[in-house]
Write a protein that binds this DNA or RNA. Structure first.
Lengths: 345, 345
DNA sequence: ATTAGCACTCTAATTAAATGAGTGCTAACA
DNA sequence: TGTTAGCACTCATTTAATTAGAGTGCTAAT
């Protein structure tokens, strides 16, 4: 008996669905009564015993019903779960109410996701590495500082103060601006590599060191943010689920959300192994060890040209996978339209 | 017996200190043994009975010791507490490791505060209203957008995309930039009022509507952030205190930290009633109702010219007030030096 | 192969009893 | 008159014992 036969599958399905619903271990009698199999509880018991031996379900203790094991959940997610296909409209109205800044859009998205699912949600800004430079400007601030402003595709603006040895006259600044813009415009951040830089420096002549400083500073500014830009919402939803809310676990999880740094692991793992775009981590499968008692569902979204970001939901293993995945899928579509079509007004 | 005599004060002090230490209701016998009063427990009992009648302490139930009431804590904070006077150096090293951005400094501060006290910490950026405009620049982005960058004292940079009807030629932009800079440079944000604006518009001639748009957009950009810039850290510390960590309360409090919006009330109240700069809210005294089971200690810091921000600690009523206030005071001093002395490197 | 029936297991809920910290009061004392 | 010893009383907390019930596993009959 190495394969699951049809009847076992039906029973496993029933057990898991029931458990997702109630959160209580489910017994043979329940399945016998509330399924269309028309089998006695005794028969179910035998089958359950087999399912347990095969590792799909387990008993919290001898005289309790069964709950799904990680393997069981995995089977459910891979084979049993039905995909909903909701209309994509619903979310829209919530989403963007004339927010022009990307941060706000993302923060808003996280909130919607958290509210819709009642789990904790996270979302990262798309990596800037492949984003293209659209505009670049230096301005003399005072005697020893230059302000550099960079605008990327999607109107993402970064700025940085650059300390300088001495003030530059306005003509030099103007020249530098023209030089930088003509050479870098349209390049992606990751394309600005050593050879580009040295070529630029050459062209800059006596100001080559300034150019170097500027590029360094920009790289730094972009890098700084890259680490941080994870938006979260509904972290406190975790407290709603008793299996996660006992003081120790809750505290660890909530810290992970507060620090955000720990979520990076999740993001990277998701970006690395892109399957159909949605990843489900059940318990120990998660790359973040604090989350071994949770399930994590993540998806990548793409903004064309390979710029991608990550969205994710963290909740109890007993999670409404169907709803979560539906939500993520919907949001994914939304994100595409939001960023691709430049917004008017 | 309307006034506290000396002995009662000593007993009250002993009760509160003991309770802050242990978190357990304290009984007459404890005080009798561990104080220098040399009184029998019976005498203490009589005094405690009086103190209870006067509202300084209370019994969780008949056969328990006493714990301080809000009134008791208040008396302690106002009259009994000793002020520490720690050296100001200690914090420094943690604090700024070549972070140039204010956000990062503030975030770091919050973290230090939370780590030092083991409570939840918050900190707001100083209000921009009184900050002075240092530099202002418009740049044509594409056919229907202008990028406006504004730099304020303390190198705080804001930017905003402004939609326009048609593109402006570079000469016009140049003129506008000169106009804006000469007229606004050195003015504080709140000084840019209607009369300034109308004067500016007049000078701008045919481009007056653009000027209007620009100023509106800037005002909006500044306002947007003003609401949001509250940094927090250590919110999960709340879970360390049993009196706050039962699911209901913890969840409310943590949400308050997640939403941040709720903390605004605290900030405003603190800014409004500046006493010696440090405010203590005990239980119901707090302007935020979710925090009626906590104590909140806040302070304002000032950056000269009336720009002020707020720092705060939220923890259980049974809080180490001495340590908290000491920390806040120290940080306050730190903040002054950090922002006032322009950082080199 | 399926099922009815029954003994068995183990958790969770309920109740009862024991413990002990702490009070309030009274009467004696200095 | 203020202080203290002594004692009865209260009540939350702990421990133990009991019960109830859900669910299983096994066996024998269908």
């Amino acid at each position: 008996m190495t394969e699951l036969d049809d009847r076992k599958i039906k029973i496993l399905d029933a057990i898991i669905r029931n458990y997702l619903d109630t959160g209580e271990p489910v017994g043979s009698r329940t399945i016998s009564k509330y399924s269309d199999l028309n089998l006695s509880s005794a028969t179910i018991r035998n089958e359950m015993s087999d399912l347990e031996e095969m590792g799909y379900i387990l008993q919290p203790h001898t005289s309790a019903g069964r709950i799904p094991s990680d393997k069981g959940y995995r089977f459910y997610v891979d084979n049993l779960m039905k995909e909903k296909n909701r209309e994509v409209t619903e979310m829209k109205e919530f989403m963007i109410e004339h927010t022009t800044k990307m941060e706000q859009v993302l923060q808003q998205m996280a909130k919607v996701l958290a509210t819709n699912t009642n789990y904790a949600a996270m979302i990262t800004a798309p990596s800037y590495q492949r984003n293209k430079v659209k505009f670049l400007q230096l301005s003399q601030m005072d005697n020893d500082q230059i302000l550099a402003v960079i605008v990327m595709e999607g109107n993402i603006v970064k700025n940085k103060m650059i300390p300088t040895r001495e003030a530059l006259d306005s003509e030099t600044i103007l020249k530098l601006n023209i030089l930088l813009n003509t050479s870098l415009n349209g390049l992606s951040v990751e394309q600005i590599n050593l050879s580009t830089i040295s070529k630029l420096k050459e062209q800059a002549g006596i100001h080559s060191n300034i150019v170097g400083d500027v590029l360094d500073a920009l790289a730094e500014a972009i890098q700084e943010d890259e680490d941080l830009e994870i938006y979260t919402s509904g972290a406190t939803n975790i407290l709603k689920y008793p299996e996660l809310s006992d003081s120790g676990k809750a505290s660890e999880l909530l810290s992970a959300f507060e620090e955000k740094q720990q979520l990076v692991g999740l993001v990277n793992d998701t970006l690395a192994s892109e399957e159909n775009g949605i990843q489900v981590y059940i318990g120990d499968e998660s790359p973040v060890k604090n989350m071994k008692d949770c399930s994590v569902v993540t998806a990548t979204y793409e903004l064309g040209e390979g710029m991608q970001g990550t969205i994710g939901i963290i909740g109890p293993k007993r999670m409404d996978y169907e709803n979560v995945m539906d939500n993520l899928k919907t949001l994914k579509v939304q994100l595409d339209t939001v960023f691709k079509k430049p917004k008017k007004e």
